[in-house]
């Protein structure tokens, strides 16, 4: 399967690493022979229709900061859309930065891929949060697959649990801790009795929070995941503007203390039960959802199977890249059965 990798940052490079390390097994065990025919970053592209040498590409990125400088396969000025349009491939893996204002550049990347008949695997929440119903329709119309397991829970198979694990059941509600950074902050505030500001600084020091932590602490990242789950799992046509969002800036030590006295704690909970919301919410310390540190947890309330909770590490380059690999295998599997029909 020929792959165009758009974005070569943490996730992109982790994927390259996994493909390298797993290449023999994926062919033997899954009949999956991935060939990365193009990689694009902001510095340009590297293209080889026979498949790029991923080891060299990783080294080059470390050395030059871009793959566009490759003497033989590099195209320093080539734009991402030109690559997606012109390079022959089955799948585009879209792993550029999340942008919740207008979804770009991811949104254009995905649409261009669809138009040229390419399937898309992405971990980029921006385009999905803003336009998932539209993108799903476009994918259907162009007879291609759109997969995005890595957007919710990173490597933890959150979407798959609901979609496959609970196949046939009806999911009535979803509740979850969807953001590791905020969960870390809230956990530390309670454990160490420190203020929000102090906990945030600590998280930043440890690399759990970005220099600009707005996306996380204002609940936007969690809201994006709520949108994705609502669409994909519950068939609701929500976008980001439909979600009522409240972040954790205003969670005080006093409020945490009061909750604690009741055997509860405060977590940033994303929920779809009727209206989609993200808000700091008091939950029981015995609720299976109540996980600490950077962990994520999601509870699916289904009509017949009852409540299922899945817990996992949430994010991380390797974790998220492993979700991309799953999506690629899923597409390969679907294509194979389609073509044999």
């Amino acid at each position: 399967m020929r792959i165009i990798l758009v974005g070569y940052g943490v996730v992109g490079q982790s994927l390259a690493d996994i493909l390298l390390r797993r290449s023999i097994e994926t062919v033997r065990d899954y009949g999956f022979n991935p060939k990365v025919v193009a990689i694009v970053d902001r510095g340009g592209a590297a293209i080889n229709s026979k498949g790029l040498d991923l080891e060299k590409m990783l080294a080059l990125k470390k050395k030059d900061g871009t793959v566009g400088t490759d003497p033989k396969f590099g195209y320093p000025q080539m734009s991402s859309s030109a690559v997606i349009e012109s390079v022959e491939a089955e799948v585009v893996v879209e792993v550029t930065p999340t942008n919740v204002k207008n979804g770009e550049p991811g949104l254009s990347h995905i649409k261009t891929a669809f138009k040229t008949g390419k399937h898309v695997v992405t971990t980029n929440k921006g385009p999905l949060a803003l336009a998932l119903p539209a993108l799903m329709e476009l994918a259907d119309y162009n007879k291609v697959y759109l997969r995005f397991s890595g957007t919710v829970g990173g490597g933890t198979p959150v979407l798959e649990l609901a979609k496959r694990g609970l196949l046939g059941d009806k999911i009535i509600a979803i509740r979850g801790i969807l953001n590791g950074t905020t969960n870390y902050i809230l956990t530390k505030m309670e454990e160490k009795c420190i203020t929000f500001q102090q906990a945030l600084e600590e998280a930043q020091k440890l690399g759990y929070a970005e220099t600009d932590p707005t996306m996380d602490i204002d609940g936007i990242d969690a809201a994006c995941k709520v949108v994705i789950m609502a669409n994909w799992i519950m068939n609701k046509k929500f976008t980001l503007k439909d979600v009522e969002v409240q972040g954790i800036r205003d969670v005080t030590l006093q409020a945490l203390g009061k909750a604690s006295k009741r055997g509860n704690t405060i977590k940033l909970i994303g929920s779809i039960d009727g209206n989609p919301t993200v808000a700091p919410t008091e939950i029981s310390k015995h609720d299976p959802l109540c996980v600490s540190g950077v962990l994520n947890a999601v509870t699916f309330v289904s009509k017949f199977a009852g409540e299922e909770t899945i817990i996992g590490r949430g994010a991380g380059g390797m974790e998220t890249a492993s979700a991309v690999l799953r999506d690629l295998l899923d597409i390969k599997h679907n294509l194979a059965s389609e073509l044999l029909m």
């Binding site: 399967m1 020929r2 062919v27 065990d29 899954y30 009949g31 999956f32 022979n33 060939k35 089955e90 390969k332 294509l335 194979a336 073509l339 044999l340």
Partner: peptide
Amino acid sequence: LSTLEIVLLGR
């Protein structure tokens, strides 16, 4: 090549 691999490998 890609199509044949997708369909045939792993069978």
